[in-house]
Structures are given as C-alpha cells and as structure tokens.
Nucleic acid binder design. Sequence first.
DNA 1: TAATGTGTAACTGTAGCAGTTACACATTAT
DNA 2: ATAATGTGTAACTGCTACAGTTACACATTA
Lengths: 151, 151
Amino acid sequence: MQLSSRFPVAVQILILIAWTPDEYKLTSDVIAQSVNTNPVLIRRVVGYLKKSELVLVSPGKRGIKLAKKPGEITLLDVYQAMELTEQDSLFGLHPDPNLKCPIGNQINKVLTPRFDRARKSMEESLAGVTIEELLSEFPPFYIPEGFIAKQ
Amino acid sequence: MQLSSRFPVAVQILILIAWTPDEYKLTSDVIAQSVNTNPVLIRRVVGYLKKSELVLVSPGKRGIKLAKKPGEITLLDVYQAMELTEQDSLFGLHPDPNLKCPIGNQINKVLTPRFDRARKSMEESLAGVTIEELLSEFPPFYIPEGFIAKQ
DNA sequence: TAATGTGTAACTGTAGCAGTTACACATTAT
DNA sequence: ATAATGTGTAACTGCTACAGTTACACATTA
C-alpha cells in the first residue's frame, strides 16, 4: 500500500510558488499544467495547505503565495498538512482484538509506542528538509512554454 | 490514509506463536480467534510470512512454527513481509509530471532521495525491535478459555 | 457587467483491503 | 481405505479512499 500522491503534489506546488518571482501570479490552472492534472485537484491540495497556513490564497483573487519563507517550510509541514485522515498513526492497529486472549488483550498497548517511535523517526527526517533546500536543485526561473501567465 | 492492518495482525501472529509452547499446535482457526477475524485472512497473512521465511507451515499439517528465534525477527522483517505491493516506496510519487515544466521535469529526481531517507529512518526504528522484546511484555503462557487446542 | 479565478459539492471510475464462501489438496487418525 | 482436519487459493461482496471530472456559487477585477 502506498500513501496518497497528494503529498508529492503539494511539495511540487510549493516549490513552484517559491520558484516563481513575485510579479507573476500562479493560478491553479497553471499549476495544474505543471503537475499534469486537474485544476480542481490543485485547489483541493492548496486548500489543505491553506488550512495549515502554508500558503496565502483567497477566492476571486488571482495568485497563490507562500505564507512563510521557503526556508521555514519543511517536508514534515507539508506531510502533516496532507494527512488529515490518518490521525497521527501511519501504521494501523487491529481495531478489535479478542480481549479474552492474553495476547490480543495487550497487543495494541505494546505495539503503539513502537509504531509511534518509527513514525517519529520518519517525521524527523522529513523535518530536516526545507522547500528552500529543494528549490536550490532547480534552475533559476524562466518562462518555458508560456504556461506561466504574467499579470 | 493508513497502511494496511495486515502488519499489526502479522506481529500479533508471531507473538502468539512465540508465546505458545512448542507442544501446542496453533492453527489458523485458533489464531483467528485471538485476532478476532477470519481463518482465511490469517492464512493469507501467514502466507506472506512464509514467503519471507519467517514461519514454517505446510499444507495439511497442523501447527505453525517460527522459522527463526524470536530474537532474530524484527518488526522490519514483518513490515517488509507485508508490504509486497509498495515496492520500497512508502510515499508515492506523482506518476507523470509535465516534463516541459522545469519543476515537473526534475521533481521526482529531487524528491526520491529525501523520501528514501525518511523511509529508511522509519525502517531502522522498526529494525530495532524484535519479537522477543515484545514477547517480554506479555504474561507467561496459560490456556485462557480453551481456544488453544492441545495436540 | 462581463471575465476570471477560487471554493465546493456531486458524481464516476478505480484500486486495495477485510471478510466470506467454496473447494482442491495434503496430512493424520481411525 | 476413508473420514476428519487443516492448509492454500480462487472468487466474490462490500467498503473506503482516491484521482479525475463537471457544474456552479461566490469573490474579485477590468
């Protein structure tokens, strides 16, 4: 099983915003072209990012901006902004083991701290990477095929 | 989104086998009662464990045994035995970004090593926990309600 | 007031999983 | 031998999450 592709899409969106000079205004249509998907899907992901206060965007107004500096946004921020459904779990637990069995009775209590540690290890790794760092691996801004609309 | 519950079920199965003395023979029916699910589901999970050479089981023969000592089986072994579908990925990548976009063009190449590092952090954490360690948190073996069939 | 863009609801199609039934096959007890 | 028991699988149902899409309300701007 694999985590949703919303996470990488969200990262790409943030990089795209950080990469594009302020005088250009990114719309969900333009971003959708870069991600190669639907503008509505972009708006959904941007909606999550907005809820986590990572981007600035408002209805009717063209242009999506970062709410923080690229160096202040980590992959963990983005990850957590996306994972609204899984409440801090990553690994599932078996919902209802047989409590009459000595093993089933305690299994979740025993597994939870181990699973939490594993999840935290992953999160710490993600927290060590910023959008700024990722951005540095891309070329400077230029307009490729005109799919960045100037305002 | 949440990873499959096969992982915690597999761990519970292994603990159950390690916990039960050798003179008792565990069947998928008995295990299913502990996990509170269906024997077929147990056999499916056991099938994955068998493929990864963590358990010994053969058609017609009653009894499921560990293929290694409890101290030699880590949560990572179990995790990897379950995650057959996600080939080493954990996080998905966007399948086809727009290659004409300077960002979409390199996004997967830039993200992959970061995602891999995060996954490895998690895996190293899982690798530090053995079935033996988990077993030590449970009481010694006893027959609770007769759902362990003596042979 | 028309054009443009955001924000959402609703729907379709797809994929993976839990759970179940059914049955082939191997082993063991009688 | 043969019946009983258990493993190994295929096939099916129902559920859930997601990507993708259409449609439309609403805000902003020219």
